[in-house]
Design a protein around this nucleic acid. Structure first.
Lengths: 337, 337
DNA sequence: CGTGATTTTGCACACCTATGCAAAATCACG
DNA sequence: CGTGATTTTGCATAGGTGTGCAAAATCACG
């Protein structure tokens, strides 16, 4: 294994000083002639700048810390893949941090320390399940943070979500227009902003339309829990269910159809939230509100990089609207294609 | 923003030299007394060793490069999450690299360069879709590599897969025992070892049992393609299908049931491979061969770390056996629970 | 206490690049 | 060509740690 080739080697061969080489590769000013000589020598020697040394001295690692929790919900892998691509295209890289199951404060602290240790330039918190404490600590550490698919009121943190309240309202409009009169809601986890917002927008619009929600039960973004509370709502005689995300909606549909032998949408209409790829599978054919992952990711990346490169850029709150995707799991209003 | 606290600061406060501090934190020998003093001073100042400086000098980053491609198949997010956890527990971290859609050689080169730039200590290639060229180049770069869920014969590379041939054979046994006489196969991508091995084990066992496979069609691990070739096989009058992975099996089942209005398993039995979480969903209730992700990941991590810490450790080829999980998508033999 | 064996410690340097500063070179222009 | 303005270049140092080497300290033991 031969020694690494350094900027000194290149300098020697090109007949210039090491700093000249450094300047060429870090984009500082240099004369045409030197740039040429250095490029040539570097090419010949196979030189590449040492990222570690560079980071050490500039204090910028070009690494983004990405904290994820439940990749079981297919919305997140999709997002993660896009994040990785986008960051790569911007010259950054993605260091993944996974929070253990029952994340304690001590775990949170460890994760943060590790991110600080690696001197990440920015952090994406990509999961509704992440506690407020984590976000607060990241902020306190002076590293730019963007919350993805998660809000936190009054925190002053940058955040990107879909228009959850509006989305909830769209579902209310749709179900009422479809002639449903006993509408229930398997809510997303009420400890999360997405869960609360969707519920809030949904219930508020129902009331505006002169209906009362027959029941709201927290499904906690969990399969088993969603099934359990579905039974509770069925006891109240619902004819339509708005479920807080697609992942739970699948469980609810399975339960209705396979366990209880009910028909969806004839006996009960089901509407989800997210529009994960699986929602389009024929077995579910789920009517749902689309979260525009692509645009959400782009907005997040942009916001984060802005903060990193221009420290004065202040935190922005972005909400991206998504359409209701009409499929077969919910009865459609007359004449609506 | 206050300056970082360095080993010199700690040394000053503890009344020792900087090297003493270094030794305490890198686990070298030191007297009880100094360890005590240094620990105390470090605690008081909130000192943490600078990972970059450390990596720069030791040449080891404690970062693992993880190359993934299609996170659309839920098998991989699951694996990724586990990898991240396992590596974290071992004091390593996971830098994610995503290959663009139509990965060209030039893309591959760029990824490799980026991994070299970051001086990753090891690499996990976690996707059947990754070309041989990538693996070869990683190897050539002198960095330990382990192929996850992907083999490459005669390459001398370490690899961890499930027992794909055996798994294929299990499916053959099961379908024949179930009384099927016209068995077809929607194969996994034949450009990948997993695809080929499953097919090989399956077909070989069928022949052993005195049956001929009615047809083998490459589904290329793709939804649309799987559906297309299913039609081809149906034209040949199959009464059972072994599908190369669960992801395709879902598409096949949707097509059979929802488009063609056939019954699974009454008209056609379907068996998959992977046992992703979704296979247990009631809508599919898919009989499938389980890939023991947990054990596969552990084996991969172990093999990689062995190679990293003991350069003399040579590449091992690990195959982990998984059971056939009986569910409702395929007719069961008499008396089999 | 004396002597040799062993452990602990500090010094100085290596790792590789970016950058402030002043000298050198180039340019513009009368 | 002369002079000042501007660009380019090299020198030297910083960034924070690990580690070989020799000196110092400790230990074992007669």
């Amino acid at each position: 294994m031969t020694r690494r080739v350094t900027s000194f080697d290149v300098a020697a061969r090109a007949g210039v000083s090491q700093s000249a080489v450094s300047r060429v590769f870090s984009g500082a000013s240099a004369s045409k002639a030197t740039v040429e000589k250095v490029r040539e020598a570097a090419e010949a020697l196979g030189y590449r700048p040492n990222v570690l040394a560079r980071s050490l001295i500039t204090g910028r690692s070009r690494i983004i810390g990405m904290v994820v929790a439940y990749l079981g919900n297919p919305f997140y892998p999709d997002a993660l893949e896009r994040f990785s691509r986008e960051f790569q295209d911007e010259g950054y890289h993605t260091l993944v941090f996974t929070l253990p199951e029952g994340a304690e404060d001590t775990d949170t602290d460890r994760i943060i320390q590790q991110m600080l240790d690696h001197q990440v330039d920015g952090i994406v918190l990509a999961s509704v399940g992440l506690g407020d404490a984590l976000a607060a600590r990241c902020e306190a550490a002076g590293i730019p943070v963007v919350l993805f698919n998660r809000g936190q009121e009054g925190s002053g943190l940058a955040q990107v979500t879909s228009a959850n309240r509006v989305g909830g309202a769209k579902v209310a409009d749709f179900l009422v227009a479809g002639g449903h009169t006993r509408i229930g809601h398997v809510a997303g986890w009420q400890g999360s902003s997405t869960g609360r917002d969707r519920t809030e927008g949904f219930v508020a619009r129902l009331v505006e339309l002169g209906q009362d929600c027959v029941g709201v039960e927290d499904g906690r973004y969990d399969h088993a829990e969603a099934v359990r509370v579905t039974d509770v709502l069925l006891d109240k005689g619902v004819d339509a269910l708005f479920v807080g995300n697609d992942h739970m909606a699948f469980a609810v549909m399975d339960h209705l159809r396979c366990t209880l032998d009910l028909s969806v949408p004839n006996d009960v209409s089901v509407v989800g939230y997210d529009d994960v790829p699986m929602a389009a599978f024929a077995a579910y054919d789920l009517t749902t509100v689309r979260q525009p992952v692509g645009r959400m990711v782009k907005a997040t990346v942009e916001a984060l990089i802005n903060q990193i490169e221009d420290k004065s850029a202040h935190a922005e709150v972005t909400e991206i609207d998504g359409p209701l995707i009409l499929r077969g799991s919910a009865r459609r209003p007359e004449g609506m294609e």
